[in-house]
């Protein structure tokens, strides 16, 4: 039986859908409703690269985690490209919040446990102010507001476990700030 998972990938500001389907060793990917293609992928050259064949052509794609939550830095053919990726649930959550990922949204960097919320919805925060504490790998990490603004949503509760890319605190940036 195929296990399917849908992702939303932002490339140069355009959002694309990708469905990753797996069955045993086999993996197929469909991009933007195009027919699914067998991925025939394997990490090469140091483990953070994927080789994908489209028909007969081979594309070597190097990936590493980028700065903000969900960002993935990509190099293809010597050209650097920054992308954002999120799973379907998160994409929908963000859509319903009406907020673009990365702007005022603080996302989990690594899997962990929310140990303390330092702000509540409606509160004004300044850029650099600590807003949430996440424990991961036995270390407590204070995450700070990337922008000054108003906290409009905290989709997690104290004690919740979170995964990389999960939105933690959504801040509406101050106009002009």
């Amino acid at each position: 039986m195929w296990m399917k998972k849908r992702y939303v990938v932002d490339l140069d500001g355009d959002q694309h859908n990708a469905v990753v389907a797996r069955r045993g060793e086999a993996t197929e990917i469909a991009v933007d409703e195009s027919p699914a293609r067998p991925a025939n992928h394997r990490p090469v050259l140091g483990g953070r690269a994927l080789s994908l064949r489209y028909g007969r052509r081979l594309h070597l794609i190097h990936l590493s985690e980028g700065g903000a939550g969900g960002a993935v830095d990509v190099t293809v053919g010597g050209r650097p490209v920054t992308t954002m990726v999120m799973d379907e649930l998160r994409a929908q959550a963000l859509e319903s919040l009406g907020t673009a990922a990365g702007s005022g949204t603080i996302c989990a960097d690594i899997p962990g446990l929310v140990v303390e919320l330092k702000v509540e919805p409606g509160q004004k925060v300044h850029q650099g102010e600590p807003v949430i504490v996440v424990e991961a790998m036995k270390m407590q990490n204070e995450l700070c507001a990337a922008v000054s603004g108003t906290v409009i949503e905290i989709p997690v509760a104290s004690g919740a476990s979170v995964n990389p890319g999960d939105p933690l605190v959504v801040i509406e940036p101050e106009p002009g700030g």
Partner: peptide, 13 residues
């Protein structure tokens, strides 16, 4: 572009 999108989704999964 398609290859990048596919690779990033695969990486995420």
């Amino acid at each position: 572009r398609q290859a990048i999108i596919a690779a990033v989704a695969l990486y995420e999964s």
